[in-house]
Nucleic acid binder design. Structure first.
Lengths: 340, 340
DNA sequence: CGTGGCCCTGGAAGCGATTCCAGGCAGGTG
DNA sequence: CACCTGCCTGGAATCGCTTCCAGGGCCACG
């Protein structure tokens, strides 16, 4: 593996000159530059990123911290990040965090200049201590999907999203609308609570009373959705519409509905959240949030800061949109139109 | 940010001694060791991985090359990799490749000692040139899901898998079985062709003639599945069972079936492949392959080689299993049992 | 023709670790 | 008491790059 010294020798110049060619310094004559360039390609020389990093005091790695990589929405975002980082010369290091402690230690990692030159926090929150750490490190860190005080990033209005999903059902005439989701709000950042807020607000806006028995919150989508959805249909007045906090949960809800011999949307309408690729395949009506785009945007913001541009420091709110497909329809029982 | 020199000064020792403590060298007296350790934790010192890497001639990064990160099965595997790498001290760099060219350049990257200390090839093939590159680099590279000549790794028997899926339907009494999938075999490694082999073999084994009109191959699961599945039901003798090359495709098939007012499994049985988490939620009968486990195993093999163990160099074949859920049943029309 | 200034260039000093080598000290032995 | 043997230890050299500094060559000007 050739070093800069080998190149310098072969080209008959000093290492400084080779370095200057490598870094596009204008202080190199054209003839020298082309001679060096020729040797570089002849030797297939590529500078050691390790040595370069040590000298420069920073690596060429962007660290992404993600709660659970298997969650499809995280993957969509990461996909965007990877695409945007593509030709930038930066590599993406992936850190998965599962508990409080891990997150803290990972954040400590990504702000260390010998580990990462910048960081991306995906669907995550941070404690004041952690924020202090990041700000003090003066290192570009961008929050993708999650507002973190003092950090640039992008996020969505989850309250509005929950409201939009619910209002879609209300507009169709539904008045008995259940909410299925995870509202546990640990520091891992769970948008379910905010979406539930939106659900409540929408109902209030239509003067539909909130019924506790229509609210099914469970630890996570990992549970068989039957357990969450099941009891809803044993109620005296079962729901005609269901708002789920995520597409994944909506899929579970649909399976549960069908396992009880009912039809979607004939017997009950279902709305999801995210608009995963699969939602399109399965015809799920859902609130679309720009997952892929959030990754692209976050990566771009980091890259801009790395380039020294002082823009790209904003906090951007991404748009939401209800995508109507085949899982929502007016309620079967027309009375709901005039009731409540 | 303290350096090894600061620690040495504060502890009243030389840098060599600090380094020895850091690397668990036995040639340090207990008293000195504990003194140094105390200073290290007092200063919250952590060695620069950049400097360490330059000195050692290699980074502490394991590079994973993955075709499309958004594919749920890749994510499951990566999840396993991340879990196994957790406390190892190695970071995971994620490289997404989309075309021929990208793959080649990424492979070139991961065998460079200044970039990665080892590599993981997920669901990928390699040209002889690329294999030569990796072998010559004498750097641990493991193939996860994909057999690559000369490289350790793990994979499954896709022919057997396709056969198992088909035989499951045959055992239930189906005789008109369609195949829906992507058999395009680019170098990005597509197991669909092998699974189709298995499908053919299973039919042959039961003396069921192969019917071209029952074979729907399309570019990918990204297409709306209706287009692949649709025409199947316009046939004079439509299928009573469908084998899909992946769970994702099976979901699309199911949606298409339902959109035509038919029921799964009453009117038609569907078998998938992979056993994604979602398959469990939606009750899909499928051929389970150990996705998560393949990641764990691959990572472990890499780690073992990095530790100098010369084991972990095998090529392992992972087991497959038909997971029967609610999308398969005997055909409605009993005649199939006695026909053909 | 002498000289100042501007390009361009070579090379040394750092970046922060590892590791090798030389040497100090203590203890055991003759 | 002298000497040898090990055990610990300090520090220099090294990894491959960037960057700063000094200096050589050339041109223009006086």
């Amino acid at each position: 593996m050739p070093t800069i010294f080998d190149v310098a020798q072969a080209a008959g110049v000093g290492v400084g000159t080779v370095s200057r060619v490598l870094n596009d310094s204008p202080a190199v004559s054209d003839s020298t530059r082309s001679r060096v360039l020729a040797v570089i390609s002849a030797l297939d020389y590529r500078p050691s990123s390790l040595a370069r990093g040590l000298s420069l005091g920073t690596s060429n790695i962007i660290g992404a911290v993600v709660p659970t990589v298997t969650h499809p929405s995280s993957m969509e975002r990461l996909h965007g990040v990877l695409d945007e980082l593509g030709g930038s010369g930066y590599d993406l290091a992936l850190y998965q965090v599962e508990g409080e402690e891990q997150r803290s230690s990972r954040i400590r990692d990504i702000v260390r200049p010998d580990r990462c030159s910048a960081g991306l926090l995906v669907s995550l929150r941070a404690t004041p201590d952690e924020i202090f750490l990041m700000v003090r490190a003066k290192r570009p860190v961008v929050a993708i999907d999650g507002y973190i005080e003092g950090l640039p990033g992008c996020h969505i209005d989850n309250v509005a999203g929950g409201r939009m999903a619910t209002e879609h059902l209300l507009a169709l005439g539904h008045r008995v609308i259940a909410f299925v989701g995870d509202v546990e709000d640990d520091l891992g950042f769970n948008p379910g609570a905010a979406r539930f807020e939106g659900y409540r607000a929408a109902l209030r806006g239509c003067h539909v009373p909130l019924r506790d028995d229509l609210i099914k919150t469970g630890p996570s989508c990992r549970e068989r959705a039957d357990q969450l959805t099941g009891h809803l249909f044993d109620l005296a007045e079962p729901p005609t519409g269901i708002v789920a906090t995520s597409d994944t949960q909506a899929f579970g809800v649909m399976a549960a509905v069908r396992s009880r011999g009912m039809e979607v949307p004939t017997d009950v309408s279902v709305v999801g959240f995210d608009d995963l690729e699969l939602a399109g395949h399965l015809g799920l009506t859902t609130v679309r949030q720009p997952l892929y785009e959030s990754g692209v945007l976050g990566a771009r913001m980091v890259l801009q800061q790395l380039d020294g541009h002082r823009d790209g420091l904003d906090v951007v709110e991404l748009p939401l949109e209800v995508v109507v497909r085949e899982t929502t329809a007016p309620p079967n029982n027309g009375s709901a139109l005039y009731g409540a």
